[in-house]
Design a protein around this nucleic acid. Structure first.
Lengths: 336, 336
DNA sequence: GCGGCGAGTGTGAGCGCTCACATCCGCCTC
DNA sequence: GAGGCGGATGTGAGCGCTCACACTCGCCGC
């Protein structure tokens, strides 16, 4: 920077002013400085800048598994929104959903002096750790359930699950089995809750849900249990599309037709849902919107210097997309 | 840090030594300093450290769309490997595959003084931009095709495509149609090349491939074109699983059975491939390994202070996984 | 006894920037 | 012509750390 200043015949401060688009720099001087930069191949050092300003213009994202559909999409749109606002994204992945792992990730981000933190880890353990965030750190929880004092951005999971279940009931199904998501995940609970709520409202008996872990494999497993343990069932609501797809496969293998014998609804609306066999009825989530809102909220918090937050969560609506995996009740799963 | 030093009754330098696990610090002093840190809730400032050492222990990842299966998985494992080695990952997503967008992402990372850069952007435009990287910057290309002077880590795409095509030919198919990946992508070319090579070796005529853009939708589209334009065809090799799935859907809709009438092979081995209808025969890629190797190579380059690199690329093998979407030739696609 | 060595510690400079302030100049107002 | 104001620039300190070096001490060898 000193070199540039010398070459342009100005002081280092003027160079800094040019760099930061300050007013009160004569056009002629500006051009001279810009030329000097170009000639010397100068690149500003944001590290030094961060040290001086105590701002890094960096946001940290704590995530569990960025390979899953929802997190992957959200992360992607967070990065885009952040970039558009002049921020850089630090990833901090958490290898297992234990509290220590979250604290560890958080500590790493804090050492990097991130300007704010997005917690994209929809597990209860993450929520607990976030309770202990430094009060002056701007933070936002995504899909994180309610953390006292923190803003959050969520998709309306409960409503989505209600829509899915009501859709099945309205088609005439007398019972809807639920395959739930991974234990300890807030989203799994919310979808479970929505399902339960819709059944209760309709006056239908609620039976225990089948376990799942979001994977197609666990959906397949659930499908086999369904065949073995739930004869007569004609409708299933799976907590995500991958499990739905695995379940459909298990039914198909057993000669049970979807949707003719059994209707299946998923959740997420993955890009390929439309092209599965049969095209999957599912609940659409607008992850891109979640990411954007998330950055909006976070940067508002940054302006406000962190501190206790008491507003309501930002809720992004979910929407049922009816395709071909649901139909009026058919034969159901045959008794063994 | 000064505060900690004062509280512990030592100099700032001793605090620094404790922080960095230097030898030659008496155990008793170390404990005293550690206690003082705890008491004051001290957190080291890596920004200042970076300024003083001129190392950020940060690696930047330039990626195009981290939502796609391969990139998502690779990014994930890069982050894990980097973390294990004490590095933090900066994401820099590129909104469109133009050279300007790549240079822009690169500039942003350089301003952040990243220690090294992984280019996870398998497009030709990315390769061109990488040619202009500063010589002293450690960098590695993933799936990037050969960039002169740069190390790269790649999955053996050509071989995978050969395996897929040969598998179909060995089943007795006389012709194999290819649905290719997105234009300008190195991987699309490599898979196309492998397919072509296998056909030529077998003495089979090569017909133009059908276009695709990796999406299930484009696979579906290709399926419809196949039905319209390629009667009699009994085997298709799609450049990725999502297109394969869309194509299977299109065939199914037309009453063409997979694998009975037509065999289909994909590429990637996405997690749900095993649970599609029918379970998809595909080429498995070990993205986790790619990510790990990538970080290994990059950090070696960091040790070596960048500079020209002349070694061969690190090649991660790909492997055909035979499932139920392929069989000996059947009826094929009926003429209209 | 003296020099040397290595363990343990302290001192000051400086990394590349921005901040607060000081300065200078030209122009307007009364 | 004195005073003031705002545009355009320069000056020096300091952000929180590490680096190179200096220093002190106890112990060894000769």
């Amino acid at each position: 920077m000193i070199d540039v200043a010398q070459l342009a015949g100005v002081s280092h401060q003027t160079v800094s002013r040019v760099l930061n688009d300050h007013p009160h720099v004569r056009e002629e001087t500006r051009v001279r400085v810009l030329d000097a930069m170009l000639e010397l191949g100068y690149r500003r050092n944001l590290t030094a800048r961060a040290l001086a300003t105590r701002r890094t213009d960096t946001i940290g994202v704590i995530a569990f598994d960025t390979t899953l559909y929802g997190p992957a999409r959200t992360l992607f749109s967070i990065e885009q929104a952040a970039r558009a606002r002049g921020y850089v994204v630090h990833m901090a992945t958490v290898p297992d959903p234990e509290e220590d792992a979250f604290s560890d990730a958080l500590r790493r981000l804090l050492e990097q002096s991130v300007t704010g933190v997005v917690v994209l880890a929809p597990q209860r353990a993450a929520v607990r750790v976030m309770g202990g965030l430094p009060a002056d750190l701007a933070a936002v929880a995504v899909e994180g359930g309610a953390v006292p004092g923190l803003p959050s951005v969520v998709v309306d999971q409960v409503d989505g699950a209600v829509q899915a279940t009501v859709h099945l009931l309205e088609l005439g199904h007398r019972e809807v089995v639920h395959v739930r998501g991974r234990e300890d995940w807030i989203e799994a609970s919310a979808r479970h809750q929505g399902w339960q709520q819709a059944l209760v409202t309709a006056g239908v008996a609620v039976r225990p849900a089948l376990p799942g872990d979001w994977s197609a494999r666990s959906g397949h497993e659930a499908g086999r249990r369904l065949l073995a343990e739930h004869p007569g069932v004609t409708a299933v609501f799976c907590a995500n599309d991958h499990m739905a797809l695995g379940l459909v496969r298990a039914l198909t293998e057993a000669g049970v037709s979807v949707p003719h014998d059994v209707s299946v609804v998923g959740f997420d609306d993955i890009a390929e849902a439309e092209f599965l066999c049969p095209p999957l009825t599912t609940v659409h989530q607008d992850f891109a919107e979640v990411g954007r809102r998330c950055v909006d909220v976070l940067l508002e918090r940054v302006e406000a210097d962190g501190g206790w937050f008491d507003g309501p969560p930002v809720v992004v609506p979910s929407e049922l997309v009816v395709r071909a995996s649901t139909a009026p009740p058919g034969a159901g799963i045959p008794a063994r």
